[in-house]
Amino acid sequence: MLKYFLARLLTFLPTFVGVTLISFSFIRLLPGDPIIVMAGERGMSEERYNALMQEFGFDQPILVQYWDYLLGVVQGDLGQSFVTKRPVWDEFFALFPATLELSICAMIFAVMLGLPAGVIAAVNRGKLPDRLFMSIALVGYSMPIFWWALLLIIVFSGNLGMTPVSGRIDLLYYFDSTTGFMLIDSLLSGQEGAFRSAVRHLILPVIVLGTIPLAVIARQTRSAMLEVLSEDYIRTARAKGLTPARVNGIHALRNALIPVITVIGLMVGTLLAGAILTETIFSWPGIGKWMVDSIFRRDYPVVQGGLMLIAVMVMIVNLTVDVLYGFINPKIRKR
């Protein structure tokens, strides 16, 4: 198992180098000059411009710049933001818990609803639950996120006044961040109603962000289940006189889970990308919003570092998925 893990870890290296290369070059391909952007409307003198060029190392050949960047990354130095002058690393981890909290909750929402929906649809293939769930899933998958978000806000926040429109918690509450996760912090603070407020703020963003993963998971679970349900061992399980709940929920689902968690792993990447839109709509102070702002400011280190860290997160999730395969189906462990 350890050998398998290390072997998988080794395949990270090329991916990692690729990610740094892409994030480094793409931001530089965008038209616009970070120093000009920094100067703003007033502009700056030739000498000042050249001095800054030298300070940031932009006068060096591009390969040398990349090499310097890579050396920094290997040593854990992602550079400083041009705008705030704070280390990218610190900024990222100050904002990341907000995104992580949102993403985890959205994923839990998607899995908790998507898995049962897929199983029920597969077991009742062609009947009403199947058609109903799969139609809803298709609509959910096809709906533009921002429109869906606005619709929910209009109904639940506007008309019904049930949920807040933006932010992570009511302004009434203030406490220091210990973990960065509002749900945990609000509980730790011991303030009455703080946790409830945090939950209420999460509901709409979680639904919006979780809708597409939910639809994908439901459809994937259904198709994987359909394939598994025609297997011989399902017939054996039924011949043993097991209840349909055991046959479908344990014997079939466990085998169907492999393609499903593959999709879940891949969805994490989509989720972090989707978070950018969701965070913007709900003014959620996470890395999505931070990244978008940095791109407009041509804040090279932030964009590079942020992209890389997100990529690493996605890689870690997918490694976890790979390891999970072996736990779910021991037959895979052998290879």
Binding site: E231, D232, Y233, R235, A239, H251, R254, N255
Partner: peptide, 19 residues
């Protein structure tokens, strides 16, 4: 089923759950 009447099948390799 499985108690008073039991059944075994043709393909032992695929009739047992791999998980």
């Amino acid at each position: 089923m499985g108690k008073d009447i039991a059944m075994i099948f043709q393909e032992p390799m695929s009739s047992l759950n791999p998980c």
